[in-house]
Amino acid sequence: MNNKKLKMTWEDSLKIYDTIVESCNGFERKGKKMIYTSSNGYMFTLLNKAGEIGIRLPKEEATKFMEQYDTGHYYSYGAKMKDYVLAPESLWNNKPIMVKYFEQSFAYVNSFPTK
């Protein structure tokens, strides 16, 4: 018997990402190949080419998130994304938690000066 976890396809990840974004208030998904959300001139969530979701959070919240969910920093195209955490796949289907963090990220970038 094969107990290996099946790797989710990028398209599966995109469907989940879109479902989360559609459940949020005040923003929508952007991009065709580079998938992201942005507000006030700043990106705040990303879906990278590896099918991983990154969420931009204030430093203290990012630290708490990484500790609570046993995850790390988010990388896109090999670069560490400042202020971003990697959302573990174990959270993706917990829509209330993911919406909470996406909306928290939205509020965070809206606290920045407009670009």
Score class of each variant (00 low, 15 high):
T63V: 12
S90D: 12
W92Y: 14
I53H: 03
K30T: 05
L6Y: 07
L57S: 03
T19M: 10
N94P: 06
N25W: 03
L6P: 13
A107T: 09
K7C: 15
E28A: 05
K15S: 13
I97P: 00
Y84E: 01
S111I: 04
T71N: 08
A87P: 04
N3I: 13
M34Q: 05
P58M: 08
K95V: 14
E52R: 12
S39D: 08
V99H: 09
S39F: 02
Y74L: 03
P113D: 14
M34A: 10
Y74I: 03
F102D: 01
K33Q: 09
A62C: 10
M66G: 08
T9S: 15
Y36L: 03
G51I: 05
G41I: 05
V21D: 00
Y75V: 14
N110V: 06
N110H: 08
T37I: 03
N48E: 07
L14M: 07
A50D: 14
W92K: 06
K33Y: 10
E67R: 07
N48P: 05
E28F: 08
I53A: 02
K64Q: 09
K32T: 14
F102L: 06
K15N: 15
M81V: 13
A87W: 00
N2E: 13
D70V: 06
K5N: 11
I53S: 00
E11Y: 14
W10M: 04
L57F: 07
T19A: 15
A79N: 15
A79H: 12
S90F: 02
D83I: 06
Y75R: 14
N2Q: 10
V85K: 01
L46W: 01
L6W: 10
M34W: 07
I35Q: 01
Y69P: 02
Y74E: 02
Y101A: 04
M43K: 06
Q104N: 11
P58A: 08
P58S: 07
Y69V: 05
L6C: 11
M8I: 13
F102T: 01
P58E: 11
I53C: 02
F65W: 13
A62V: 06
T19G: 15
D18Q: 09
G31I: 02
M66E: 03
M8C: 09
E60M: 12
E22C: 14
K49F: 07
E11R: 15
D12L: 02
